[in-house]
Design a binder for these strands. Structure first.
Lengths: 157, 157
DNA sequence: TCGATATAGAACTAATCTAGTACCGATTGC
DNA sequence: GCAATCGGTACTAGATTAGTTCTATATCGA
């Protein structure tokens, strides 16, 4: 139900890694190793997070990534949104009806905006600072790394 | 970001249709026509909702579907959960670690349960009664019906 | 009792999406 | 200048989704 992609999962892992590094810059290779993620994947995700303005990147030798803001000022919604694109409500509501206004049977009640807002609010209420605290009742990984050819368990959220 | 399947979207449409029918039973054909959904699709979804106990079905001529409980007692979480399976937290937390306990790198903090719970709470706070009220600021459809061969716009939630 | 109407359930297919990899270019420190 | 790193795009195999089809079962009414 309401699944999140593995990219977003990994993204949160990487962000918590950076949050714990206390503003020290870490390279993609270091972060990937720390979180046991394949380097190309981690690299791809870090690029996206930097492009979204959540990370600051430093190129060249001794380069790396660090958080663009304090962990308290970054929410789960920020991270997930950066990796999975804008929430739907921005695609088909308000002034922007692209892809929807063409449809002849758009007569249905506005339940989705309400749901979107509820979920968005829930995600925005969770900060990276909270997620970085290593005090969970149960250590849990929902999206464990799985090499491309291996069977998988589902990843519903 | 955090997408919901079209089935769940259609499911909510169909449920609101039944909620507005005020406990009168409606056939799959009637509901499908009302919501402009292809009959086989509507039929498939209604079957699933009935199996999940959200609808009561009446077979045979003059048969149809009606709500198993009052619209106020049915939440968005119920509908989405019925169509997209149990939420992840039940698959990999508490006593039930199937598919996760085997993994060697399960050392990560428990951020997902927190997020799961937040989203689940948000969805549970929205009742079918609310969703059935035709008073939205903007009538919106996120998952418009699209014949199998047609291009699509994304459907992020 | 028979036939029309409806739901129950499983199986199948095409299109789309996801996860992960590979490659090449640009920057920077030593 | 060269090695270390990030930036960006393109590609592929596998999984998932969306929708259809087929057959079985139940019920109403003539």
């Amino acid at each position: 139900m309401i699944r999140i992609t593995r990219e977003a999962d990994y993204g949160i892992l990487l962000m918590t890694g950076l949050a714990q590094a206390e503003s020290q810059a870490l390279s993609a290779a270091v972060l990937a190793q720390q979180r046991r993620l394949p380097l190309p994947m981690a690299s791809k995700i870090l690029k996206a997070l930097a492009r979204a303005g959540l990370l600051v990147s430093q190129r060249g030798a001794q380069g790396g990534y660090s958080l663009a803001r304090s962990p308290a000022a970054i929410s789960a919604a920020d991270i997930i949104g950066a990796l999975e694109g804008p929430i739907a409500i921005t695609e088909c509501s308000g002034e922007n009806h692209d892809g929807c206004s063409r449809l002849e049977h758009c007569e249905v009640s506005g339940h989705w905006p309400r749901i979107n807002q509820a979920i968005h609010a829930a995600l925005q209420s969770i900060s990276l600072l909270e997620m970085s605290r290593p005090d969970p009742p149960q250590p849990i990984r929902l999206h464990p790394f799985r090499p491309a050819t291996t069977a998988t368990t589902g990843h519903p959220l």
